[in-house]
């Protein structure tokens, strides 16, 4: 499916890349916009790697982001950033790996609300840990400038996009497709269902962990309630639904849409922005189940 639409994918990538490069070269406003765009692309591509592929909708992806942010903030000025940011990804991945077995036994709507509840649980546990340590927030003085962070974020967005694209075409991706369609049938034709789900779940947490670390540096302070904000999880799902989770272009389209809408409206009226976002989500679920990416190839057909 991706093969047949190489051109649009290239065009979308080029457009998003152009915007980000523009952000690198110009003043801080565009840098921040580009940083946000790259962040949402990185997060949603990673989410798609698990939820889009397997159909297990995670409403708690912020947990990886938050753990990553915590690792970077906790080790700030102790561990150099070139090490702490990858460590953030590793920590998020390890956490996902640790909880994957019990969490992935749960299916359907139970899974959706479980992932949400788990993220909130981790949030409140860390909140109490931080309070116990006497740190209601951590200031990160001397964090790199947004320009530098944008480079890293663009790298993460590109890595997440390439990863999703590669998984789609791989044997691993075929296995995940089958799991989404019918788990019992999948294991009966030899697919090690549990192992594949666990791997995809853990893999989908790594880049969000690093993204969280970078975003902690970006805001120059760390507060548990801020980095574990469930709105981040919700926004990821919204981008994926609006853009379409079917292939690697969807999240890019969705992120472009979201960042565009937010730049036009968020400052003028955050409420109207969110109302429109909610309406778009409803509209997509009802009328555009394949998302914006579905508009690109209305031919339909199977994968």
């Amino acid at each position: 499916m991706i093969r047949a639409h190489g051109l649009p994918l290239a065009a979308i990538l080029a457009g998003a890349a152009a915007l980000m490069v523009f952000g690198l070269g110009s003043g801080s406003y565009w840098t921040i916009v580009a940083l946000n765009l790259a962040m949402w692309i990185a997060l949603t591509q990673s989410w798609s790697l698990f939820s889009g592929m397997t159909g297990y909708i995670s409403l708690g992806h912020v947990v990886a982001y938050g753990i990553g942010a915590y690792v970077v903030a906790f080790s700030f000025k102790i561990v150099p950033l070139w090490l702490s940011i990858p460590l953030a990804g590793v920590a998020a991945g390890l956490f996902a790996l640790m909880v994957a077995l019990p969490v992935l036994r749960v299916r359907g709507p139970y899974f959706v609300i479980l992932t949400f509840g788990l993220a909130e649980l981790v949030k409140y546990i860390l909140l109490n840990v931080e309070t116990g340590l006497g740190k209601s927030s951590r200031l990160l003085f001397g964090a790199p400038k947004p320009d530098t962070l944008l480079w890293i974020m663009v790298g993460l967005a590109a890595a997440a996009t390439v990863a999703l694209y590669a998984v789609h075409r791989s044997r691993f991706g075929r296995g995940l497709d089958a799991i989404r369609e019918d788990e019992t049938a999948a294991e009966t034709i030899g697919i090690p269902v549990v192992r594949l789900k666990v791997l995809a779940y853990a893999a989908s947490a790594v880049i969000p962990g690093m993204v969280g670390g970078v975003m902690a540096l970006r805001s120059t302070y760390f507060e548990v309630l801020q980095v574990f904000n469930p709105t981040i999880s919700f926004t990821i799902v919204t981008i994926a639904i609006i853009g379409g989770a079917g292939d690697a272009r969807g999240p890019i389209l969705g992120a472009l849409f979201l960042v565009g809408l937010s730049e036009v409206l968020q400052n003028a009226s955050p409420q109207i922005y969110l109302i429109l976002l909610g309406l778009c989500l409803i509209g997509c679920v009802l009328f555009l189940p394949t998302g914006l990416v579905g508009l690109l190839h209305r031919k339909g057909g199977a994968r």
């Binding site: 709507p109 959706v112 919700f234 639904i241 989500l281 409803i282 679920v285």
Partner: peptide, 11 residues
Amino acid sequence: SLLLFFGVSIV
């Protein structure tokens, strides 16, 4: 329905 109600809740 989960997604639709999520949209409704934001709105």
